[in-house]
Simulated assay, not measured.
Amino acid sequence: MEISRFIPKKSIKLYTSVIVSVIILYSFVFLHLTVAEGQIENANLLTAVYWVMTTMTTVGYGDVVLLSDTGKAFSILVQLSGITIVFGILFPQIIIPWIEKAVKTKLPTHVPDDMKHHIVICASTKLVEILIEGLKDQKVSYVVIDDDEQAVRELMKNDIICIYGNPAEEDTLQRAKVQSARFLIANKSDSENANIALTARKISQVEIISMADDISNTKYLRYAGANKVLSPKRLLGLYMGKRAVDPFVNRLTGAIEFLDGVNIVEFPVYPKSPLVGKTLKVANIQKRTGANIVGMLKGGTFSFHPEDSDIITENTVFLATGTTEQLSNLQKLTV
């Protein structure tokens, strides 16, 4: 693996020139001192370079030694400058960046050549992970783009198709084959989603779905190129409003199709529900219904990251995703 792939060639040439120049200079000084000290057997270029290299790297085998006071002072100078060059320049400026970037290249950066009609998902979150489970069940192709190295490694560990890169950059989206994708989901902060939408719209006509933390940013995300803007908080408010008008409705009122055949909807938990008093882990909703809980409203606080230890109460509201059948199964458990 060539270092020049990862470090600018100008930098490599500069550092190499400095190091070689210093070694040559020190070698000639060494030759002069060995002759002055009468060490004729060591007065040759090979020994000079050998001594300079071992002294600069602080290895110092001790088989070749300068004995005069001037020679000892020169040895100290070579050691100190060697520490600066090797540990202050060579390692931090060339070796370590090379190793780090070489490791990063092991992260996936391209989708398979035959991937098409897939879903491009920008950033990994709990909502996305649950959404992916639904995509897998329906055998829908997808790829997650994330610029967090650790997040990508975690996705790889969980066998989730992903690539490493900034989803707001053209090159990354092209490597994700956004031009042949069914649609793109922007799932970062509102400002980042706007940049993603602008970039994606510049290079493709893919349908863009953007998540919005702040409802007031909806129009700006649309201006940026998003075809749809979803705000889970807004969806929750609309659903609860409909429930207030018709609290005993037996159908999936307020359900919004998030993907083909996959809906997102909110379910309040009623006092007589068998789920009341149980933790999410004990309730085991996903296994019992097939639906996924992506958020919870409890005690006036909404969380997009519900924990297994969260207790379900009669005033809990679930934000769930799934097919119509899966959500209907969940609805039966909440009443």
Rank of each mutant, 00 (worst) to 15 (best):
I145F: 10
V64H: 07
H32V: 14
I203W: 07
F183C: 10
K228A: 09
Y220W: 15
N44F: 08
V144Q: 06
D260E: 15
S21Q: 10
T105Q: 13
G295R: 02
K233F: 08
I215H: 13
P112G: 09
T57C: 09
A255G: 06
G88I: 09
I85L: 15
E169T: 09
L235H: 12
L236C: 07
H118V: 01
C122Q: 09
S189M: 06
L198H: 14
T324F: 10
V120R: 06
I12N: 03
L173N: 03
I203N: 05
T55G: 05
Q150C: 08
I19W: 06
K278I: 02
G261F: 05
A224W: 01
Y142L: 04
G290Y: 05
L184G: 00
P274I: 06
T105E: 15
S216I: 07
V294P: 04
L66M: 04
K219C: 13
T34V: 13
E149W: 04
K177H: 13
E192D: 15
E170Y: 07
E170W: 00
L221S: 02
D190M: 03
V103C: 08
L80I: 07
N195D: 15
T324I: 11
K10E: 11
I121D: 01
Y220M: 15
I264P: 00
E149G: 00
I3R: 10
D213N: 13
L66P: 00
K10R: 11
S309T: 13
D137P: 00
A291C: 03
P108H: 08
T109V: 08
S17C: 13
K136S: 06
A194H: 02
P247K: 06
N158E: 14
